[in-house]
């Protein structure tokens, strides 16, 4: 997949010469070796593959500080998100993300209400989960995506 389809390379080129967000980005400030411009530089050179297995791309906390301070209103979170999506397509996402997704796809949520604790706290019954309708919607969506990719294939 060409990343130039999902990312704006002109804007990213300006990121390389700017870096204003480094003073606000929590990961740039506090995680040793976290350097988004190194990743962006390689994306622009077409050499992004080497970062797909790197933990750096999962260290962007999506706090949106970079987006808010960016004079292009772009922010390098866009580059990191695109890289994570690409890594996930290749099955390189961390096991916890895989487990989280599986639970979400099956139940529509990431955890079941803690019933004994709720009872002890005298909390009301939780509202209906919406699981059934969610699963139905997911099936419809999956079928439609499969049909679209088959069309593309043919």
């Amino acid at each position: 997949m060409g990343l130039d389809k999902t990312l704006n390379f002109d804007l990213l080129q300006k990121c390389l010469g700017c870096g204003a967000c480094y003073d606000l980005c929590p990961s740039s400030l506090h995680i040793e070796g976290y350097d988004p411009r190194a990743v962006i530089g390689d994306i622009l050179q077409g050499e992004h593959e080497k970062w797909l297995e790197h933990k750096s791309i999962w260290q962007c906390l999506e706090c949106h500080h970079c987006l808010e301070i960016c004079y292009q209103h772009y922010g390098f979170e866009n580059a990191m998100t695109a890289m994570r999506m690409l890594a996930t397509k290749k099955g390189l996402n961390p096991p916890q993300v895989k487990r989280g997704w599986e639970m979400f796809a099956k139940t529509g949520r990431l955890g079941e209400p803690a019933m004994p604790a709720r009872k002890k706290l005298n909390l009301p019954e939780p509202a209906a989960s919406g699981k059934e309708e969610f699963v139905k919607l997911y099936e419809i969506y999956k079928k439609s995506k499969e049909a679209a990719s088959e069309d593309k294939g043919a």
Binding site: T88, N93, Q96, V97, G100
Partner: peptide, 8 residues
């Protein structure tokens, strides 16, 4: 949730 769902 974003990281567990949007990334996938």
């Amino acid at each position: 949730e974003k990281s567990l769902v949007n990334n996938v």
